[in-house]
Amino acid sequence: MTMTLQAFMAQLTIGLIGGCFYAMLSMGLAIIFGLLNIINFTHGAQFMMAAFLAWIGLTQLGPWLGFPSFAINFWVALVIVPLVVAAVGMVIERALLRRLYQLDHLYGLLLTFGVALVMEGGFRYAFGVSGQGYEPPELLQGPFDVGFMLLPKYRIFVVVASLLICFGTWYLFERTKLGAYLRAGTENPKLLQAFGINVPVMITLTYGFGVALAGIAGVLAAPIMQITPLMGGNLLNIVFAVVVIGGLGSILGSMITGLSLGLIEGLTKVFYPEASTVVVFVIMALVLLVRPAGLFGREV
């Protein structure tokens, strides 16, 4: 067991980046579950859609329009794509999910699962299953010397950007008036509406916000993951385990759990690589035995 510090830190960094994506995605799921009481199985497909839209904007859109030199660059995509994905999400909420709020959770789960399959099928039909690549923006290409090792600039950017997004979301939720409305709506939406808040619109916007988080994650993932129709579904399996471990409904909980599980995965790759793909699920099983509501979850 000889391992250089460099290799160790490299695995840890990869784990941290994975953790950033877990954190962003599980935060979105937690926000949506809090207010809508729906486990959004479309989350992975929305993440995938964002990565694809970024790729389409960069490589396909110009030729389609007949201007081969036209492209939507990474920075523009980082703003526009989450908005587009959120808009599509809000249409889904208005047209489909809204009809299910009176029913059991299970129906929301089935519907969002079905929508995810349709979206994945659509992208598979249009673009096939082989992965597409996405060049990081020029500014972030190449390595950066962090003192004890070289890291790709883009990966550092992903870590910093996701931490900012996670912190910003936490701040919005826990420290602002808007967040107070969201927390109140999560606790007792009916009463909030009796105070004069337009709760149906708030629910639509919240769904849009949760989906936009998946959209941002998707664009950030485009340069470091293979862009395929199944990229979201694969990632979402782990994210659901993260959500179970952290407990649904806690913003801070999903952030901390997401980051730590990424790191634990990274460490497992160093010390016992064979277990690295199952370690999250083993932890999930243990947590379920000891604290069924999750580490940060509220007992219901």
Partner: peptide, 27 residues
């Protein structure tokens, strides 16, 4: 809908009090 009714000038104090537990008194 309820939010439009409330905005006509009603203030409601429900039987179970409806205090939001995850919000501070100030909030």
């Amino acid at each position: 809908p309820p939010h439009k009714i409330a905005r006509l000038g009603l203030g409601y104090c429900p039987e179970e009090r409806g205090i939001y537990k995850t919000l501070t008194t100030q909030e």
